[in-house]
Nucleic acid binder design. Structure first.
Lengths: 154, 154
DNA sequence: TTTCGTGCAAAAGTTTTGCAGTCTA
DNA sequence: TAGACTGCAAAACTTTTGCACGAAA
């Protein structure tokens, strides 16, 4: 359910898989790309391009925002990451993973992932097949996270 | 499931309810607001501010884009309409209605509504209650609509 | 008549793009 | 070395805001 710790073996695997995928796609493995992907893979909060840029400046002081945008667009085009559906003005991203759902706090805009296997296996209503071909189904829950509901009520 | 025809009794009811809600909220009932709401209520495609503006120019040639933006923001603030979650750069809107789900074509970006009562009544996973308080649950299906899958395959 | 809303124009916020130099393979 | 990638700067696109006039209650 949750993503690995920055220094775990699982993390290195993830970066290794990323480099493999880049090679396969004919993308050069640049310092910037690796760091952007790493940032996204280890963040649990589905950050925007601006957020990723801000965080990376500590490590790569000269990285530019447009590189972050360009890289995210490229990686999305190659199916390595995806945009998250939100009602916010800035686009937010996550490492591609079709099988999870989102829990969104309407106050602080935190987005966290959750699994729901029973739902995943549940058949869709019949009428849907008339519409076309479904590739992905996802549940999005909105509400107030624990922290925000305490703030609001206090 | 679907929204009423422009000239049905149901439609007039909808507009009437809108005017009531405006009065209750202390909002003046201007020509522009009524037309923007009407456009949204009768459109079945969850239009963006730009789209609404383009469509309204036939009827109200002098209406400005910023009025459309301002009106949509105001109506959303008062809970009469809502933003739709998308991965697109322009925000899209719909008349507020908590109990329906979305079917999105990844090619032409058509968004249509569907009902799924079995899901609505299905209990959430237990762990969710640890996170906070859920106010709304929604299913979003992605895929290719019939028209687009034919185009792609031909 | 008073207050709120609109249209205009300008600004702010988000993302994309052309170009010249830099780096990966 | 060749082609792809980056950083810079400028542009494009989306949305918001200040102000003066116009419209609703």
């Amino acid at each position: 359910m949750y993503q690995g710790h920055p220094h775990s073996a699982q993390s290195n695997e993830r970066l290794h898989a990323f480099e493999q995928a880049c090679r396969k796609a004919g993308l050069k493995i640049t310092h910037q790309r690796v760091e952007i992907f790493r940032e996204l893979a280890f963040a649990q909060d589905h950050p925007s391009a601006e957020t990723i840029h801000r965080r990376l400046k500590k490590k790569l002081p000269t990285i530019s925002v447009d590189t972050v945008y360009r890289t995210l667009t490229t990686l999305e085009k190659h199916g390595l990451i995806s945009k998250v559906q939100t009602v916010e003005s800035q686009a937010r991203f996550e490492v591609k993973d079709d099988h999870h759902h989102h829990l969104i706090c309407d106050n602080c805009h935190e987005i966290i992932d959750f699994d729901w296997q029973v739902f995943d296996e549940y058949p869709l209503p019949n009428e849907i097949s008339d519409w076309g071909k479904i590739k992905n189904k996802k549940v999005i829950l909105h509400g107030l996270c624990r922290k925000c509901s305490q703030k609001v009520s206090s």
